[in-house]
Nucleic acid binder design. Structure first.
Lengths: 210, 210
DNA sequence: GCGCAAACCTGCGTGCACGCAAAAATGTGC
DNA sequence: GCACATTTTTGCGTGCACGCAGGTTTGCGC
């Protein structure tokens, strides 16, 4: 019951942060404003989010981590690890939720928000590693962690590039329209790791014969 | 000639930061102290380093980025990309410089410093990507970036684990002795990516026949 | 209901990162 | 050597993150 309230506060902070940021622009929102809008003290804000941008971004990326893990395990057992994992991650960026378009535009326009948004990919690495070991119990812990981290890093590269493709053009402020399909870019970024994933899934303890 | 002076200031700040941190403990050093010891204003400090920990850590990791890139290109052309790259990265953690032992101990003991130290691995990713494309001009830019990022992520996992292996044991403060060989750990962390590296080096544009 | 322990929220104080604009230092053409 | 354009340094002000030490709420056993 206590947990209920905590999640509620989290949610309130997230949505308040996003709403205010969209309304007044990301630089014209102070932490105090968000806290007040959510009905908590400014100090409490930092018990939930350790930076100002984090709350705004969290409104968009809230349950990505758990979704990815679930998606990996949801793939039929026949498909290889590489396909399962890559499809799962790509799927996360296929459907950006409801009000995401405007939010993403704002995030793309602000360097600080961009960086924070890209960093949230890190949160999927833990669950992803667990999902990998669950699907392939033979790969050892370190390898699973490393593979998950590698995939996360690849996704970050893709995200960064997609978000950046905006401000290369000397466009007027607000005119940031990331070009190309994000899912395609993510898939392209993850594909180089397919050999590593399949190799790990097949013969983890096999010392290479030399 | 101007560049000279900047590098000198950087160096002064780095060494001053490390010296003071070792002397008084990492938490008892303010940026004002470091700045004063280096003979610049506190504000200038933040023109060179964007966080307090960064200067301390930089004293240990200063030219790692360029060294890795050089090491990759130094390997004879016959050895595969995977071996070349992995050896180069592992080599970076084989010989910790002169006064590193005590510095590393301090870094391992402070969570903030640990995080910052791990983050410096990011700086090698750019040069590493360049080195990869230089060695294998056929791999496209995105793939090279992704591979470099993946390797960086793997190295971070290894580093984090090594540094953390200390405070698992309920040891008394200061008694943090990372166990096991760091180079071995790093190699183990990077090895899962070997198949991906070799696959990229061999047939990058080959669409998989289906 | 009642008291108690744990978890949580809050105010305060400190140190820090960084934008901004003026001042100082460093090169450049003449 | 002298005026000038650039780059660096610096002081100042603001907002932010977080440790700490109470006060407040929440849930549990009785």
């Amino acid at each position: 019951m206590r947990e209920r309230k905590k999640q509620a506060t989290r949610e309130a902070l997230r949505t308040a942060a996003l709403r205010l940021a969209l309304k007044h622009g990301p630089d014209n929102v102070r932490v105090d404003d968000i806290a007040e809008a959510a009905g908590v003290s400014p100090r409490t804000y930092n018990n939930y989010f350790s930076s100002r941008e984090q709350a705004i971004v969290a409104a968009v990326t809230a349950q990505r981590a758990s979704q990815v893990a679930a998606a990996v395990l949801a793939r039929p057992a026949e498909v290889g690890l590489a396909d399962a994992v890559i499809d799962a991650v790509v799927g996360q960026y296929a459907d950006q939720g409801e009000h995401a378009p405007e939010a993403l535009l704002m995030i793309a326009a602000s360097p600080a928000l961009r960086a924070c948004y890209v960093d949230t990919v890190t949160t999927i690495e833990g669950p992803l590693a667990e999902a990998i070991t669950e699907r392939c119990p033979d790969v050892d812990r370190l390898t699973a962690q490393v593979l998950a981290a590698g995939l996360g890093a690849a996704a970050k590269v893709a995200l960064r590039q997609w978000l950046q493709s905006a401000d290369v053009a000397p466009s007027m402020p607000g005119f940031v329209v990331p070009s190309g399909s994000l899912p395609d870019l993510v898939r392209a970024a993850l594909t180089p790791f397919a050999p590593a994933l399949d190799a790990a899934a097949v013969g983890p303890p096999a010392a290479d014969p030399r």
